[in-house]
Design a protein around this nucleic acid. Sequence first.
DNA 1: TCTAGCTTCGA
DNA 2: CGAAGCTAG
Length: 422
Amino acid sequence: MATAIVLFNRDLRVHDHPALAAACERAERVVPLFVLDPAVPEGNRRGFLLECLAELRAALRARDGDLVVRQGDVVRETMKLAAEVGVTTICASADVSSLARRREERFAGERIEYLLFPGVTVVPPDALRPSGGGDHYRVFTPYWRAWTRHPRRPVLPPPRAVRTPSGLAAGRLPRPQPPGPAPGGEPAARERADRWLRHGLDGYADGHDDLAGDRTSRLSPYLRFGCLSPLELACRAERSESFVRQLCWRDFHHQVTYAFPRIGRENYRHPERRWRQDPDALQAWQAGMTGLPIVDAGMRQLLAEGWMHNRARLITAAYLVRHLGLDWRDGVRHFFQHLLDGDVADNSGNWQWVAGTGNDTRPNRTFNPLRQAKRYDPDGHYVRRYVPELAGVPAPYVHEPWRLPSPPAGYPARLDSAADQG
DNA sequence: TCTAGCTTCGA
DNA sequence: CGAAGCTAG
């Protein structure tokens, strides 16, 4: 390859980037490119993305290269640039969502060499298949066993030099403002990962389900945008099986999505299942005003931080589909709109798992939010942090304020009167 | 090498 | 309930 475009998408890093590494090794000239979709709405994720792009550009410039930024349709803009610069090859990271797959198909139909590389997951989504037949795993535990045994590709260093041809218009990058809930970009990601591996990882197994303590890594937004290589993280975090397991869940959902790209729209199982419509209940859930403290705390954390503790995601999601009986797609949409780490495979996969339409073959799993609250937020610190109306309520009542002789002012009554006592 | 049927187990 | 893995044939 004489001149190659490296088309970035959700792999916004220079460390362990197989497509970038291959282009820098094999091509004489390398044009790193990102095409901004003007349809990406304003909000947390867009600001975070712009910060990631600014940092990626800085990292490439430090290596004598640059990041070319264009706006519009990714295939059209890429092919236009390819024609301008005389590009012979496009290198990109393979991805799993239906949007990504359609993009890959469109590129494959263009008259240019188009090469896909790994890097979005630890293990490529088509690498493992169950021994009894079938194109993907439907149950986590057997996938985990196969995943841990699977040989891994080596972690790649960042390229030493990126030979971007001079005279290219790099393109303006809009300034993200105001600053979002977490700093975007690879340097912030690596710093956070280093700190986490040194100080957080060993407490993860015991602490990750404690809502108030919040001893989770908070690395999910960086994995979402590829500021961190999941493979590098999995290798460096090897000593904590429970944390590596979470990375495996991410891979698991990606391999399901690869095999079933409609995961964000259609039931994976039980296509006939129907849900209730209730706009008022949905709105109360979205606003964190259901009257069930543990649910409201999670929903308000989401609005305030663009992030929610994983345990709270399970509790709030189960409440929407199991207690309110509403459609998991309503939940997916709301989460996707607000989560900094919102990603099709993980978000939809987890929602379908909770809704019972996904990859869990246990028929009658019940999720009692009150029992969950008492178990994972025993002192009520999590609830008090995010629900100020309950800030003065003592521990025995903070999860069940309806048992107080006089309910706290401003906090709504319970939306679901049917929730059982835990 | 393949398959039927049995066992195990599930964020 | 039903997926996956194992074992016997």
